[in-house]
């Protein structure tokens, strides 16, 4: 259990100050495309605080990729905190090639009406309208994901325009902070999806941690330079330096396949995990789901992780791909920056 300098409400005050700046710019006839972000109404839906709060209740948990109702039910019984509905698991996306798009809304709807935990779904990077469709469908969170084929090679979706929160991938602190500035409510390290190999997720998490540490020890002057290098506001860097972590929830993803992988990513400071192909590309999804959930939430207890690791069998773990054997054009993590 980690204690930070600032409470959730204090972090949100910062985001609200940004919202106020935007609102006053709007009063001057600028930034006309943005909605009101800070509401004085008695009851308000879809505000920054409501969107940032949703991932807090995912912390310590495991979000599982599923492709149909049966897998979603296995995930819920296994203790998943949410499911992510896809057309194909990342491993198959990699194998089949072609253009990968959002999942069939009919399948997402079926999943939503058969389980009680939140349902997320992926959209292509920059595909504003796939996201609008999922918002209309009432999914709980949208993943703007590099696993699908990007629809916009230059821009990401302006996520401030949505009532539904977004999660985005990041390989470095700069990517994470750019996504937060675009309105993401949650970050996940990218890793290299669909490989069953955790090494890239470890690399990204360690890089972000080391960038956070160096930011905290930097002079104001250098931090100002960093803000320009990262293409984000200086105030956001100040907040991050003070907090010593990302100001929103940060999960690990990409290549997690066993309970020990899960515990490793939690030990490195992840708030929780996304497990993609690791569960339903194994031969023992029911027990593996449960074992990974146990290891993720009780990672400080090696004896519990041992018990979880004993529940599964290495023979049944997905085969995995050595990332060095992938040609550069097959890497999914470099599709956006």
């Amino acid at each position: 259990m980690r204690l930070y300098e600032l409470t959730f409400a204090e972090v949100e005050d910062y985001f609200y100050k940004l919202a106020e700046v935007r609102d006053s710019l709007k009063d001057q006839g600028l930034l006309t495309e943005l909605p009101e972000l800070r509401s004085n109404l008695k009851i308000a839906e879809g505000t920054t605080m409501v969107k940032h709060a949703f991932p807090i209740f995912q912390k310590g948990g495991v979000v599982m990729d599923v492709t149909n109702v049966k897998q979603a039910e296995i995930a819920e019984d296994g203790g998943a905190v949410s499911v992510m509905v896809l057309d194909k698991l990342p491993y198959d996306v990699r194998k089949v090639g072609g253009v990968a798009r959002m999942a069939d809304p009919k399948i997402i709807e079926e999943v939503m009406s058969s389980i009680t935990i939140p349902v997320m779904a992926k959209v292509r990077i920059g595909h504003f309208y796939e996201a609008k469709v999922l918002e209309a469908l009432d999914v709980d969170m949208i993943d703007e994901s590099e696993v699908l084929t990007p629809a916009d090679e230059v821009h990401h979706i302006n996520k401030w325009l949505f009532k539904v929160p977004f999660v985005n991938g990041a390989r470095s602190l700069a990517e994470a902070l750019r996504r937060i500035s675009e309105g993401a409510s949650m970050i996940r390290t990218k890793g290299e999806p669909g490989t069953g190999n955790v090494s890239e997720a470890v690399r990204h998490m360690k890089l972000i941690n080391s960038e956070l540490r160096s930011l905290a020890s930097m002079s104001e002057e250098d931090r100002n330079m960093k803000a320009r290098e990262y293409q984000v506001s200086y105030q956001l860097l100040e907040l991050v330096a003070k907090l010593g972590r990302l100001p929103i929830v940060n999960f690990a993803a990409g290549g997690i396949a066993t309970p020990a992988d899960a515990a490793l990513m939690m030990w490195l400071g992840s708030d929780g995990l996304f497990v993609g192909s690791g569960i339903f590309k194994s031969e023992d999804p029911e027990v593996r789901a449960r074992a990974i959930v146990m290891a993720a939430s009780a990672w400080e207890y090696p004896e519990v992780v041992l018990e979880a690791q004993k529940m599964i069998s290495e023979q049944k773990t997905m085969m995995g791909i050595d990332i060095k054997s992938l040609p550069p054009e097959q890497l999914l993590q470099v599709r956006d920056t």
């Binding site: 008695k42 308000a44 839906e45 879809g46 939503m112 918002e135 999914v139 969170m141 539904v164 929160p165």
Partner: peptide
Amino acid sequence: NYYGRQRESFEA
């Protein structure tokens, strides 16, 4: 989930 899903979540 009395009030609905995340889109219907609110502050008050």
